[in-house]
Design a protein around this nucleic acid. Sequence first.
DNA 1: ACTGTCACG
DNA 2: ACGTACGTGACAGTT
Length: 887
Amino acid sequence: MSKKIVLIDGHSILNRAFYALPVLTNSEGLYTNAVLGFLNILFKILDEEKPDYLTIAFDVHQPTFRHEMYAEYKGTRKAMPEELRGQVPLLKEVLKAMKISILEKGGYEADDILGTLAVRAEREGYEVSVVSGDRDLLQLATDTIKIRIPKTKKGGTEIENYNTKDVMETYGVTPKEFIDMKALMGDASDNIPGVPGIGEKTAAKIIMSFSSIENAYAHIDEVTPNKARESMINNREQAYLSKTLATIKTDCEVDYRIEDADYQEIYNEDAYNYFKRLELKSLLNRFSGVNASNAKSKKEEETKFETITGKKKAGEIFDAAVKVSGSGPVGFYLITEGEVLGLALSFGEDTCLLLAAEEAEALSGQDITAGLGRLLAAGKSFATLHLKEQLVFLPEEVREGIDDIAIAAYLLNPLQSSYECDDIARDYLKLTLPSQAEIFGKGSLKEFLKLKKEESTAFFCNYAYTALKAMPLVLEELRLKGMDSLYNTIEMPLVYALYDMEQRGIKVNKEELKEYGDKLTVGINRLEKEIYEMAGEEFNINSPKQLGVILFEKLHLPNGKKTKTGYSTSAEVLEKLQSEEPIVGKILEYRQLTKLKSTYADGLAVYISNDGRIHGKFHQTIAATGRISSTEPNLQNIPIRMELGREIRKVFIPEEGYVFLDADYSQIELRVLAHMSGDERLIEAYKENQDIHRITASLVFHTPFEEVTSEQRRAAKAVNFGIVYGISSFGLGQGLNISRKEAEDYINRYFDTYPGVKTFLDELVNEGKTEGYVTTLYGRRRPIPELTSSNFMTRSFGERVAMNSPIQGTAADIIKIAMIRVNEKLKALKLRSRLILQIHDELLIEAHKEEAEEVRKLLKEEMQNAAELLVTLEVDVNEGPNWYEAK
DNA sequence: ACTGTCACG
DNA sequence: ACGTACGTGACAGTT
């Protein structure tokens, strides 16, 4: 078997990758989409071909200013966009780090270098693949030289392959003839003039008959059509010049030895660090665990990371830590997995230790928490990451006075997808650390600690180390940005409220949930049968693809919208088709029932713990606006709008002797808007304390309050919602099912009615554009990078975000304040009632029957007074024996 | 792992 | 001309 070499056209592939992928930057702000796309293609090819040698060719283009101007004027080669320009050197650096052979030589085009190398390699007996986005290279194809052209298709890149016969099948000419064809037809992007009046079709025809332009000229009388012949005669010199220009050189003088192009160590430490820095996460798993953990940070080498075992030694460590904690902060991280597995500590200049729990009578989990308790009680300043997850193991008296650096980092930039140790080390310490997934995947922590001692020591020590070292930096930045009060008085105290909610959980009637599920199953089976009957065949109703075929091909329903992959079968589309075919209504009903069954009836059941309660998780660092999010399960999207779904709320019940109190803010976002905008009429409207949608309708449609029709009210309500979402006539039109023009009219009337709102929203967009972020009443920031986009759609999104985030975010801030106060008050008053859920503008409390009245008052009081606005905050409280009744 | 759909505020 | 309402999470199907 002959050896194989892959040659890649660097610029061409990078360029292609750039336009194929959406703009992407790492946290330093470096553009990385083209590099990522290039590497994806590179890896795909390496995986497929496993070549022995690999070289990437770049042309050293230093176009003069004039040249570029000329090219742009001609509309041929557009100047390289700024976002791509920087990625050229970046890619080269990455490739160098990967120790991949790069060839670039001034004065030659990449084409010519590739041609030269390909021909040389072929002559020396290699099998050759040339990868480029440029079809010009097809002229190089032979039986041993394969030209590969990546294509971006939906669902990834596919690569077209061309040997001699493939070129002939596709173009009807041989690769050599391809040059002549191009000489005739020309190529604007390569500045090949060609012969005027001859396009692809004619060129192909002529070359298929005569095989070369020389031969065509030799038999010029036989060339047809007449127009082409005339033009060829008149442009003879240009034709030959074009052929020269179109011919890729295969005899460049390049100093290159194929043997040097053996890429042996692409997965090395340097390369790993580059990938990590560029945040090319999807590619990191290519670096085997060994490589990843070998990539030690510099700090790690300076600071000794050590695992400590044994009670006595651990005691000494705690003594030392206690001493230090009087003067300086201590970083810690408690490693848990249902039990305490260890504790990482970092303090002083360079002390970083892991106390590992052991079997038998050595150092136990209890010893560790006791030691930590002693430390926390003695010191005053501590830093950790993900405090809420550790609280359950911290003795109760010492749970405060701890900074959660992950939460601080979230406030500084809420757009990140995660705030793990490696993210924070990267952003604030300029350190490259491996992530948990990179070192040990998703195996058990206990195994990891036991089997990979050295790696786990480093990994967990880094948590404590990162928390400690990043702490002064992030806290200072919070102060600089005026967010220290948000952090200290809202976010950190909220940690404890959320922790309490998770601990308490919510009781679920398991039997009733089961019955509810069974009821759904009966309905689902019935509908399934009916649908199969009506469709005339059985198919998977849950598959949008199969459903689309049935509805739009078999039953010939008019297909309205399309998605990327086919027909849209969304409820929005189906609702409009309901009158056409009875099957559509059945499908909608089926969808509703299966959703309820899978997500709620079956979905919730698996989360019921031994105590009969669901202990969902609440997340504080997910939503960009500052809202809380809920998972495992999501308790913030339990059905309510449709009666059948709403029924499920009956299975959420209070403990024996308790009742539910459910309190929700009435239109908190609109009230926040009234306050923030200061619009006098909106404020006045709220002072009336009447139906705001009706008032708005009355003002907007110039109709007396009493005479507002339900249709007018509905429209006004939609406009109110639209305003909060960041108004757009298109979106409002969709929401109301009216034309864009009508929607625009509504919006204009609205802004005429409430001019202060208009000014306020305009100011928000301006602020977003000049500052790069918008803020809530409490100083929470949301950066909006989309506002600088040159893409209309992206920028418009940014504008809507600029209008929505301060409103949604301020409402989130307010309810967080209420939660903290309610939770603290319940505890301070030694009541048995507890806060158990937050659903954005609603709090659910499990109140002891004897305390119900007191708690109702307290709840209403604290929620209403959580913020002092220009309009009052109204709160409705309801009581009930289950969540259904309490709402 | 991504897409479509749908549950909530 | 472009083509979406803001913020989330879960499930099923497809790649």
